[in-house]
Design a protein around this nucleic acid. Structure first.
Lengths: 331, 331
DNA sequence: TTGAAAGCGGTACCAC
DNA sequence: GTGGTACCGCTTTCAA
């Protein structure tokens, strides 16, 4: 592999000049530039990115931490990030945090040791304080989580609005008794979605009813259990709004096991619009979570603030939207 | 950030010695080692991985190319790779090839420019010759594709067996007329799966019937179209074996649109066991593709051959297995 | 066992 | 505009 030194020799110029034409950093005479370019061609020269990183103190890499590398949700996000970043020659190093404090910190530590220029994080275990502290040490952008004090670094979804839209859709369809299967309430976005649900209810002049509320776990089994519980209560309802698609699937399966027809007997709504929602039967109505777009935006944040792509605009808040499919019907 | 130089100064030893204790490379006196370790502690020293890479000519990174970063299948694979590699301090750089020749070559070029120590590839557009040539230049391990001439570098699934198991299961359930919806025949694994299907038929003394065969595209819409075609032909069948889960979903949806009950009227089998197969209704029977395990094994190959983890064993061929769920029934 | 020093392949500042 | 050169932080002979 040819080095910059051999190129300079062949072109009959200095190292510095070769470096200049590579980076287009300073003015180089037309003739000189061409000599260098040609020498590069002839030697099939490829810059050594490691050496560049060491000398420039910039690794051209950004670390991305997700809860799980598999999982449709994160796939979309990573895909958005990869796309945006590779188009400008940066690379993304992935790591999984598994929603566990130690594991998340470990992964972040790892990414830092790799000298990432910035970190894109989707974390739910570490504390806000930790993130605030981390952000002093290395640039961080946080996905789907608002951390007070680093607002500019957060790319969020308006979860409250999502919760609102979901329930509002049911109300608009004429449903009066709407059950709600929530996610784990220690998560902020879960509480926001719930708040949206309550706002829709209130706007319609209906009271929030504890008897129609269950806290789930975001997994399918949790959806089954929650539905089971709702059914056992014998408090009537014609619609169920779930805080994510997995639980909605569980709820549908459970309802079916109880000989209930969907959507004739009960309408079901999910949240996230992950790929599986298009494959359920009946196809699940849900709230679209633009994970890919948000990932892309996180990458854009990095481009703008770390790689000085100043003209770029970043959007910190995204809006969810309603996706109506077959799991809901008019009451 | 402290450097090795400051550590050496503080410990009152030379640079070289510090380096030695970091790498455990050569014998270092107990006392000296402790002095160094302590100095590191006190300075909160973290080695600069970029500098290490430059000096050692080893980037400790491996590139992973998948068709799409999203998509459950690749998620599992990447997850396996990430897990295995991070546990030994290596990092994985991801890129997407989008099943397009130029795009795949681009991504590989990109990964090489990042000085990856090895490449783990899931590609379907580039040719065998290209891969062979590439492998001379940089270590490559190929996932789910057998390239003659670099057998040791391929981690494959016994697709033929998978195809066999799928059809065999239908035969065992008493089905006589079994339709087959294939993937794009230009892909090797597709032809292998088909070969397995034929073998099962033959063993049962049944002839392969062109009228019950359709070439699909691996997507849901293709599954719908294929099923539509089968139904139009009016040639009777009681079971459909599909070359992947997406098409199986399409086939199920289409059948349902034609008022056919699954599995009472027609049994359906998929292939891959991606996450969606657990969410369809009825739950899809399928052939398990251990994508995560295979990704992990690819990573192990790299550990063994590139990072000299000699005792590791690598398994080049994986066996698929039958997963029976609700979409099939006895005839 | 330990130290000195020559790289690894670039970047960037300072002269000219 | 171009060249000289001191780093960037670590690895790895080669001697001692």
């Amino acid at each position: 592999m040819a080095t910059i030194y051999q190129v300079s020799e062949r072109a009959g110029v200095s190292l510095a000049t070769v470096s200049r034409v590579m980076n287009g950093s300073a003015k180089v005479g037309e003739a000189t530039r061409n000599k260098v370019l040609q020498a590069m061609q002839e030697l099939n020269y490829r810059p050594n990115s490691i050496a560049q990183s060491l000398a420039s103190n910039c690794s051209n890499s950004v670390g991305m931490l997700v809860s799980e590398v598999h999982g449709p949700f994160f796939g979309e996000m990573m895909s958005g990030v990869e796309n945006e970043l590779r188009s400008v020659g940066k690379h993304v190093i992935i790591a999984a945090g598994h929603s566990d404090v130690e594991s998340e910190k470990d992964a972040i530590e790892f990414l830092i040791s790799r000298k990432c220029d910035a970190l894109i994080l989707h974390v739910d275990a570490v504390s806000d304080e930790y993130l605030l502290e981390l952000n002093k040490q290395t640039p961080v952008v946080v996905l789907n989580r608002h951390v007070a004090g680093m607002d500019e670094n957060c790319i969020c979804l308006n979860n409250e609005l999502g919760g609102y839209l979901a329930t509002k859709a049911m109300l608009d369809l004429g449903h009066q008794q709407i059950a709600y299967i929530s996610g784990p309430l220690f998560k902020l976005d879960v509480r926001e979605r719930l708040a949206g649900h309550k706002r829709a209810l209130q706007e319609a002049g209906r009271a929030f009813d504890e008897g129609l509320f269950v806290e789930g776990d975001f997994h399918e089994a949790g959806g089954v259990a929650a539905m089971e519980q709702l059914l056992k209560h014998k408090q009537p309802f014609s619609a169920v709004v779930c805080a994510n698609d997995e639980m909605a699937c569980g709820a549908m399966n459970c309802a079916r096991d109880h000989q209930l027809d969907i959507p004739a007997d009960v309408s079901i709504m999910g949240f996230d619009n992950v790929i599986i929602s298009r494959y359920t039967f009946p196809h699940l109505s849900t709230i679209d979570f633009p994970a890919g777009e948000m990932g892309r935006m996180a990458a854009r944040w990095v481009r703008k603030h770390i790689y000085q792509d100043d003209k770029l605009k970043v959007q910190n808040l995204f809006e969810p939207s309603l996706v109506l499919r077959d799991s809901v019907s008019r009451r």
